[in-house]
Structures are given as C-alpha cells and as structure tokens.
Computed example of a mutant assay.
Amino acid sequence: MEIDHQELEILFSVLVATILSGLVGYERENKDKPAGLRTNMIVGGFSCLIVSLSLPLIDFVHNYEFQEAVKADPIRILQALVVGISFIGAGTIIKQNNDKVKGLTTAATLLYCLGIGVATALHKYLIAVGITLLILIINYSFSAVKGKITGNSEENEGVK
C-alpha cells in the first residue's frame, strides 16, 4: 500500500484546524459555555475536512466522467457548512424569562471556528493562526473591558 501524500496533507490540515479551534474552545470551556472545547474542535476539524475533501471529490467526479451530470461549485460547500454550523450554534442560544439572551457569543465563536477550518483546509495557515488569535483576543479581552465599563463581570450579565 502506497502512502497518498494528499491524504497526509488533509490529515495534517484537519489536525491543525482541530488544535487551533481547540484553543478557542478552551476559552469557551473555561467560561462554562454550552459549546466548549470538544464542540469547537469538532467544528473546526470537520469544516477543514469537508473543504479539504472537495478537491478529491471534484477529481473523482471528473475521472469517472460524471462532469456533465455534476457541476463543481465550491461555494455550495461553504454555504452548506455555514448553514450546518449555524444550526448547531442556534442550539446554544437561550432566551431567558427576563428577555435576556445567552449564548450568542458561543454561537458566533462556532462560526469563527468554521472559518479557522476553512482557512486551514485552503493551506492558509497564517490566516488560520491569525484569526485564532483574534477570536481569543475578542473573547478574553473584550469581555473583561466590557465588565470594567459596565461594572459587571460577564457571569453576572444576562447577555453572554
């Protein structure tokens, strides 16, 4: 059995996306949010996997002469990923009796991990690392700044 270098590249990309998304998930986990470490890791890794497999899928379709029946459109893959991850994110949003909403940041963070996965799948590792750092700065720093401005810690606020 010969080692397929494309498969190794895909596995490496999925690993990188999973680790980077895990850093984001760790922050969510530390704040006791509904979608924590594992969920963010799975979202980032899965999105990377699906985007990474799109090229071999297109090659497969063309090799078996299905190209007349199937037109390759990578935007549809991204669109399906956004819809699917948005559905998962919607499950993290809770409206409380006092009309306060919790979980919006967690839902948005899941979408951000989708972006990490897509960037990694496209071998844009600098972008993937950069946006990982950016979401960590957003989630760590701005919640602390908001707490200082409003005089409330994030845990005591109704909106998270």
Rank of each mutant, 00 (worst) to 15 (best):
2 E>N: 01
6 Q>I: 15
9 E>K: 07
14 V>Q: 07
15 L>M: 12
16 V>W: 00
19 I>S: 10
20 L>Q: 06
24 V>D: 07
27 E>N: 15
29 E>S: 05
30 N>H: 05
31 K>G: 09
33 K>M: 12
33 K>T: 10
37 L>H: 12
38 R>F: 05
39 T>G: 13
42 I>C: 11
48 C>Q: 00
53 L>C: 04
53 L>Q: 07
53 L>E: 07
54 S>Y: 11
55 L>H: 07
56 P>Y: 02
56 P>W: 09
60 F>L: 13
61 V>Q: 01
65 E>T: 15
68 E>C: 08
68 E>F: 10
72 A>V: 00
74 P>E: 03
75 I>A: 03
77 I>P: 01
77 I>V: 08
79 Q>M: 10
86 S>A: 14
91 G>Q: 14
92 T>G: 02
93 I>D: 02
93 I>N: 05
106 T>M: 05
108 A>P: 11
110 L>Y: 01
113 C>I: 04
114 L>H: 01
115 G>N: 00
115 G>C: 08
115 G>H: 00
116 I>M: 04
121 A>F: 02
123 H>M: 13
124 K>Y: 11
124 K>T: 05
126 L>P: 09
126 L>Q: 09
127 I>N: 03
128 A>K: 00
131 I>E: 03
133 L>M: 09
134 L>D: 12
134 L>T: 15
134 L>Q: 15
136 L>E: 02
139 N>V: 11
141 S>N: 09
143 S>T: 14
146 K>E: 10
148 K>C: 02
148 K>A: 10
149 I>Q: 11
155 E>V: 15
157 E>S: 12
